[in-house]
Amino acid sequence: MTIKDPNQPKLQQDERQRRWRLVLGNDAELDTPLSEQDTRLDQLMEQLYIPGESQGGRYGHHYGRRLPKAALWFKDIRALFPESAASIIQNDALQRLDMSSLLQDPAFLDAVKPDINLVASLLMMKDYIPDEAKDNARKLVKQLVEQLMQHYRPAAEQSIRGALNRASRSNRPRPSEVNWNATIRKNLKHWQPEEQIIFPERLVGYGRRQRRAKQVILCVDQSGSMADSVIYSSIFAAVISSMPSLHTQLVVFDTEVVDLSEQLQDPVDMLFGIQLGGGTDIAKALTYCEGLITNPSETQLILISDLYENGDKQALLQSAQRIIEGGTNLVTLLALSDDGAPISNRHIAGQFTALGSPAFACTPDLFPPLMAAALERRDLHQFASSHNLPVVTGEESTV
């Protein structure tokens, strides 16, 4: 059988035919010869996805099967597919295969590449991984943690330190507090070429070091849908906890609240202390965090949740209102991930926005500048708008 479109030239027709053949699999009645590489792609997919009784093509599921030479299969997937596709296929394979056996295979550990999906799967299954495989599971989690820490630490430290420095600047510094480099740059327009001097019309300085560190509390929903957000939040919490100008705390919750602040120095242990899945009681979590606040005007409380509340919704909004009116900067993120627009409770998100805490999703790359904006108490609605992050207003999203 040939799929044709009279409006497309032959090359496009052939490519369209080829793609349908690869999507539908070997059972497709399409007269399409495959190249050597496409044949290999087709074989790799046949080993994982097989026709189901109720669904045609590659979309039936056969759980519990084992791939032949699994380590080589994972290596080929990484070599032949783009990164985004390979990650999806790898995650599908791990859900369908005997992960316990794979985790005890040294060749598999060398072939697989840890990513957010893999680590989320491991964390969700951690209570079911046999003892002899747990060390290897930790090694995979550690690889991703080190990769993410290395990637995000420089940007986070630069953005946050810059924000703290700007927040402490004074335009009426004492002589010992004058920042001469900044003062010269600020007053270059007052250069007098004849006298060869600059008149410092405006002094720029850094105020006295703050005796009390600014407080940052990350309050993170650990329900199953928030897996990526939990992992990224934990990484950023570990990064900024090493900055002496900040007092960082990490609180995760489902129907119960767990304070992981004491584990921030060991992100791997911290991640294994997270229990993904379960219900959601955001009101209880916010009430707990409210009790941690020591100096509201110097506190940033970052709530990361899709706002699907199983607890008392009215208590949730009352708690948020108390926190905001008390002077704490409440930042509401519906997700911290690369997945785009999240599914969230738009009604409650709109109410948070109305209270003065604009609710929007944020990518990991934008989290450092977001933290800088929060520390400087800038308008977060404007921040979201400038970065094309839709703010949920309840009825519609605005950019």
Rank of each mutant, 00 (worst) to 15 (best):
residue 5 D to N: 14
residue 219 C to E: 01
residue 342 P to I: 07
residue 280 T to F: 11
residue 183 T to M: 00
residue 257 V to M: 03
residue 70 A to I: 08
residue 122 L to S: 11
residue 372 A to S: 07
residue 9 P to Y: 14
residue 247 H to Y: 00
residue 259 D to G: 02
residue 290 E to D: 12
residue 114 P to T: 03
residue 91 N to L: 07
residue 66 R to P: 03
residue 106 P to N: 06
residue 140 L to H: 12
residue 173 P to A: 01
residue 70 A to T: 10
residue 188 L to N: 05
residue 96 R to D: 05
residue 78 R to F: 03
residue 129 I to V: 14
residue 57 G to M: 07
residue 55 Q to L: 14
residue 252 V to A: 07
residue 248 T to D: 00
residue 315 A to M: 10
residue 190 H to K: 09
residue 177 E to Q: 15
residue 66 R to I: 03
residue 148 L to E: 01
residue 328 T to S: 11
residue 395 E to N: 07
residue 85 A to S: 14
residue 393 T to V: 04
residue 71 A to T: 03
residue 39 T to W: 00
residue 199 F to W: 00
residue 105 D to P: 04
residue 35 S to D: 07
residue 397 S to Q: 14
residue 304 I to C: 07
residue 130 P to G: 15
residue 56 G to I: 13
residue 125 M to W: 08
residue 364 P to R: 03
residue 36 E to R: 13
residue 241 S to R: 09
residue 165 N to Y: 03
residue 341 A to G: 01
residue 332 T to I: 09
residue 322 R to P: 04
residue 263 Q to L: 01
residue 104 Q to L: 04
residue 377 R to A: 15
residue 15 E to D: 12
residue 160 I to T: 07
residue 229 S to G: 00
residue 262 E to R: 15
residue 356 G to D: 00
residue 148 L to M: 09
residue 220 V to S: 13
residue 309 E to F: 04
residue 252 V to L: 05
residue 48 L to W: 09
residue 333 L to E: 10
residue 393 T to D: 06
residue 45 M to W: 12
residue 114 P to S: 15
residue 254 D to T: 07
residue 67 L to I: 10
residue 96 R to I: 02
residue 223 S to Y: 09
residue 109 L to P: 01
residue 197 I to L: 14
residue 341 A to D: 13
residue 11 L to A: 15
residue 183 T to I: 05
residue 5 D to H: 11
residue 238 A to I: 02
residue 347 H to R: 04
residue 63 Y to I: 13
residue 385 S to P: 05
residue 171 N to T: 04
residue 301 L to N: 06
residue 241 S to N: 11
residue 15 E to M: 11
residue 7 N to G: 09
residue 127 D to E: 13
residue 166 R to I: 05
residue 68 P to C: 11
residue 311 G to L: 14
residue 362 C to R: 01
residue 156 A to C: 09
residue 83 E to D: 13
residue 340 G to M: 08
residue 275 Q to G: 07
residue 153 R to S: 14
residue 213 A to I: 06
residue 45 M to A: 14
residue 301 L to S: 01
residue 358 P to R: 00
residue 168 S to L: 12
residue 156 A to H: 04
residue 229 S to V: 03
residue 265 Q to Y: 02
residue 81 F to I: 04
residue 167 A to N: 12
residue 303 L to N: 10
residue 355 L to K: 12
residue 278 G to M: 04
residue 164 L to R: 05
residue 217 I to L: 14
residue 321 Q to M: 02
residue 338 D to I: 15
residue 126 K to M: 09
residue 389 L to Y: 08
residue 370 L to M: 06
residue 289 C to P: 02
residue 321 Q to W: 00
residue 239 V to M: 11
residue 78 R to N: 01
residue 389 L to T: 03
residue 27 D to W: 06
residue 283 A to I: 15
residue 312 D to P: 06
residue 119 V to I: 05
residue 76 D to P: 08
residue 133 A to F: 11
residue 87 S to V: 08
residue 214 K to H: 10
residue 184 I to R: 05
residue 86 A to F: 07
residue 326 G to V: 02
residue 167 A to V: 06
residue 178 V to M: 04
residue 43 Q to I: 12
residue 306 D to L: 12
residue 251 V to S: 15
residue 128 Y to W: 11
residue 320 A to Q: 03
residue 390 P to D: 06
residue 128 Y to L: 08
residue 283 A to P: 11
residue 350 G to A: 02
residue 381 H to C: 08
residue 138 R to F: 11
residue 191 W to R: 06
residue 189 K to I: 00
residue 335 A to Q: 06
residue 226 M to K: 00
residue 228 D to M: 10
